[in-house]
């Protein structure tokens, strides 16, 4: 890690911690990955994977994608476990419903986002920073170096597009 990366570490760590705290306040039974551990994992992958960071936007871009990857991997793994033979889990039908829904949703979102990113990389970036790092609209505008109204418009459009994509997928 060079100097500039080191400077970014506390920023991102604080950001991710804040994010973890937000998550911490919500109760979601049946989850296995702890937020702090999640942050650690993301952090490790980040600092080990990239040789050099070109500013906060770059770092956060990577952080968001890392976070997305971790969550998707985890959802897939749990899906496999369910179909595999984790009897205890399968019996707990209510718990299953609770955990299944977010997982299925996340995987669907991941696919839709994949398509959206090819069509519209800029707005896809807004979604990543907002949804996977937990940045506010203001922070997103700051990181991307665009106006707040642009970010707002992009965010509203992206949400509508993704929502439509998910709904269309569900119909098919």
């Amino acid at each position: 890690m060079d100097r500039s990366t080191e400077d970014l570490v506390p920023l991102v760590y604080a950001q991710l911690r804040r994010y973890a705290r937000q998550v911490l306040r919500r109760e979601a039974p049946g989850q296995t990955l702890q937020p702090t551990a999640l942050v650690h994992e993301a952090f490790l992958r980040l600092v080990q994977g990239e040789p050099e960071w070109q500013g906060p936007a770059h770092f956060l871009h990577a952080a968001a994608r890392t976070m997305r990857r971790i969550l998707v991997d985890r959802a897939r793994r749990r899906g496999r476990e369910r179909h595999g033979g984790d009897r205890e889990r399968r019996d707990l039908s209510t718990e299953l419903a609770q955990t299944l829904a977010p997982d299925a949703e996340l995987l669907a979102l991941d696919e839709a986002l994949e398509r959206f990113e090819r069509l519209d990389p800029r707005r896809s970036e807004v979604v990543h920073l907002r949804h996977f790092v937990g940045l506010s609209l203001e922070e997103t505008a700051q990181v991307l170096g665009v106006s707040l109204s642009t970010v707002k418009a992009d965010w509203v459009f992206a949400r509508a597009w993704l929502k439509r994509a998910l709904e269309r997928d569900a119909e098919e």
Partner: peptide, 9 residues
């Protein structure tokens, strides 16, 4: 924000 994880510090 995405992550559905909760639990321990």
């Amino acid at each position: 924000p995405a992550c559905g994880a909760a639990g321990a510090a």
